[in-house]
Every structure is written in C-alpha cells, then in structure tokens.
C-alpha cells in the first residue's frame, strides 16, 4: 500500500509536468494544426535558463525560498515565451501557406537547432541544480512520508492549468483563440487578428513548457540537453491520449500517463519505463485516434 501511494503521488507529480508541456502542443495544434516539434526543446531551455538565473542572481539568499522560486518562474516563463514567439516568427510564420511537410520539417529543424544551441552553450554533460533552494520537507500523509515537493508541483501545475482554462474560456483573447481554432477564415472575417492569436498561443504554450522545465530541474536536481525530446514525446503522447487540440484533455492525458508510467515502472519493469509511454501512444493511435476527449486524426478515404 505504501509503495502504491508513493508511486501514485510520484506519478501525479511527473504527470502534471507532462500535462503542462502537453498544453503547449495542444494549443498550437488547436490553432495551426501543426505539431510543434521544437516545444520539447523550449522546455529544456526553461530548465537551463532557470539554472542560469538561479546561480547568477542567487535569489534564494535575498528573499525567502518560495518567493525566490516564484520570481524565478516568472522570469523563466517570460524568457521562454519570448523565444517561443521568436521561433514562430522565424520558423513557422513564413510557412503558413506551405504544404504540411514543410512546416513539420522546419519544426524538426528548429528542434535540432535549439537542442544543439543548448549543448554548445552549456555542454553535453548533465548539469546539477543547487539542492538547497527548496526545503526537502517530507509531510506525513496517514503515516506515509510524502515529499512536499511532489505536492507543490501538483498544486502549482493545477493552479496554472485552471488559470489557463479560465483565460481561454472567460477572456476576450481566449474567445478569439477558440474561434481561430474552430475556423481561421471565419475568425478573420469576424475581425479577429488571427496572426496575433497565433503569437499569443506561441507565448502561452512555451511559457508553461518553460515552467515545467524549471520544475523538472527542481524536482530531479539534474538536467540534460537531450531531455527535451523524451519529455516532449511523452507530453505529446499525453496530448494525444487526452485528445489533441483539447485543453482539459491535455491535463487529463498528462496525469494519466504520469500515473501509468510510475505504476508500470514499479509493478512491471523499470527497464521498460520509457517504452510504456510509446506503447500507450501507438495503442491509442490504433484503437482510438481521437483520444479520450478529442478530435479525429486518422484519414479516411
């Protein structure tokens, strides 16, 4: 029982990170019908920018640890959002009218470019986050010790997701995003600046991804330049699992995948941990391509 609860909470923490990244995939897909392959690398960038800001400003000495991490998160999210917007302008905007393959290839190119930029700047080895930022408190949950960090990650992610959901559902810009996702042409005719909508999507998604990168750094304590594509693929699986283009779907898919992976690693085999996500991805695409709550992705001729 104890192991089950440990794995479950661990799965929920990792799953909420997947969910945050998955939101970026799903939002871009919703509006542009493009899989932004570079999204995973924006997540990596978030982790590395977090490390740089953390070590160069040592904020945790000037204010409390929680305030420091909060401020750090805001800075990282802002920077990654800017890079996301830049990425859209440089790599995707010129290809709006091009065939699908062109945009996919450009996205792959962007992914390779970003990943290797990180490698050339920070080196190919694992980098270690300072361990003393957040207190390693363990709380007692019905007699079972649960690290506070897991609960914090889950709560902060859930808060961000709720904020995003309200933003999409309740604000004018959110309405514009939903309209552009349904029909770009009609949205344009209704006076919506679709270009600006796309730009906003390319800022919000990467900002969440960057925050997820920071969380991974704080949670696991070490980061690597290639981690973006593993997390990216898993988050993409989460987005498909929940139904791509669907925001609550991404959240559900992320949490579900995290839990499945954690339990699978614990009860089936740790060596196959990374294969579980890919197996889920392939099975879901064969059996129910539209995901749990989403649109169809298979072509029928």
């Amino acid at each position: 029982m104890e192991e089950f609860v440990q794995q479950l909470t661990n799965g929920l923490a990792v799953g909420s990170i997947y969910a945050l990244i998955a939101l970026g995939y799903t939002m871009v897909y919703g509006v542009l019908k493009l899989i932004n392959f570079a999204h995973g690398d924006l997540f990596t960038l978030g982790a590395y920018l977090g490390l740089t800001l953390l070590t160069s400003f040592s904020l945790q000495d000037k204010m409390g640890p929680l305030a420091a991490v909060g401020l750090l998160a805001i800075m990282v999210m802002g920077l990654v959002a800017l890079i996301g917007a830049l990425l859209d302008r440089v790599a995707y905007k010129p290809l709006r009218e091009s065939p699908r393959l062109s945009a996919v290839v450009s996205a792959l190119g962007a992914s390779i470019f970003l990943q290797n930029t990180v490698m050339l700047i920070y080196g190919a080895r694992f980098r270690v986050y300072p361990q003393d930022i957040l207190p390693r408190t363990v709380i007692d949950f019905f007699g079972m010790p649960i690290p506070l960090m897991r609960i914090l990650i889950l709560l902060v992610s859930l808060a961000m997701m709720v904020a995003l959901y309200t933003f999409i559902q309740k604000t004018r810009i959110g309405t514009a995003i939903r309209a552009a996702a349904i029909d770009q042409g009609a949205a344009r005719l209704m006076g919506i600046n679709v270009d600006r909508v796309i730009l906003i999507v390319f800022m919000v998604g990467p900002a969440l991804g960057g925050a997820a990168g920071l969380m991974v750094g704080l949670y696991y304590g070490q980061i690597n330049f290639t981690m973006g594509w593993v997390y990216g693929l898993k988050a993409f699986t989460a987005a498909i699992l929940g139904g791509i283009g669907n925001i609550p779907g991404a959240m559900l898919g992320g949490l579900l995948l995290g839990v499945m992976e954690a339990l699978g690693a614990a009860y089936i085999s740790i060596a196959w941990k990374d294969a579980i996500a890919f197996l889920v991805l392939i099975l879901i695409l064969i059996v129910r391509p539209k995901g749990i709550l989403g649109e169809r992705v298979a072509e029928k001729i």
Binding site: R100, V104, L233, F236, A275, F278, I282, A298
Partner: peptide, 19 residues
C-alpha cells in the same frame, strides 16, 4: 497505422524505433 495522417505516422515511427 498506415492510414494515419502524416505527422502522426511520424510520431508512431519514432515510438517504434525507441521501443
């Protein structure tokens, strides 16, 4: 998976390679 839309097929083949 042959009937899947292009970019999904790409993801599936990546997954197969990894598995």
């Amino acid at each position: 998976v042959i009937h899947l839309r292009g970019d999904y097929l790409l993801i599936v083949t990546v997954g197969v390679g990894e598995i």
